[in-house]
Simulated assay, not measured.
Amino acid sequence: MSTVAVVGGHGQVARLLHPLLRDAGHVPVALVRSDTHRAVLESAGAEVRLLDIEAADEGDVAAALDGCDAVVFAAGGGPDGNIERKRTVDLEGSLKSVAGARAAGITRFVQISAIGVDDPPADDASPVWRAYVEAKRDADAALRESGLDWTILRPGRLTDDPGTGRVALGPDVARAEIPRADVAAAVAAVLDDPTSAGHQWDLVTGDVPVVLAVRQAAGTA
Rank of each mutant, 00 (worst) to 15 (best):
Q216E: 15
F109S: 03
S34N: 15
E54H: 03
E134N: 12
H18I: 07
D60E: 14
G147P: 13
R180V: 02
G93C: 13
G105Q: 09
P121Y: 04
E84T: 09
P19S: 08
L31A: 10
L41P: 10
H26F: 09
F73G: 06
L191A: 03
D140T: 13
V32D: 05
D123T: 07
D52P: 06
D138R: 15
D192P: 00
D207N: 05
W129T: 06
E54L: 03
A197M: 01
S2K: 11
G105W: 11
A139P: 11
I112G: 08
G156D: 01
E134H: 10
L148P: 08
R180Q: 06
T88Y: 03
L148Y: 10
G59Q: 09
V4Y: 09
D202W: 05
A221S: 12
Q111W: 02
I106G: 03
V72S: 13
D80C: 02
V214S: 04
D202C: 04
S146H: 08
S43Q: 14
A64V: 10
D35V: 04
A46V: 03
A56W: 05
D90H: 07
T205L: 01
G45N: 08
G165D: 05
L212F: 00
A70L: 05
G25E: 13
R85V: 15
P127I: 05
D160E: 13
A181M: 07
W129S: 03
D124K: 07
R130G: 08
D66F: 04
F73I: 04
A44R: 15
G9D: 07
L91Q: 14
G198L: 05
A189F: 11
N82I: 09
G11C: 10
G81T: 10
D138H: 14
S196C: 05
V71P: 03
S94Y: 02
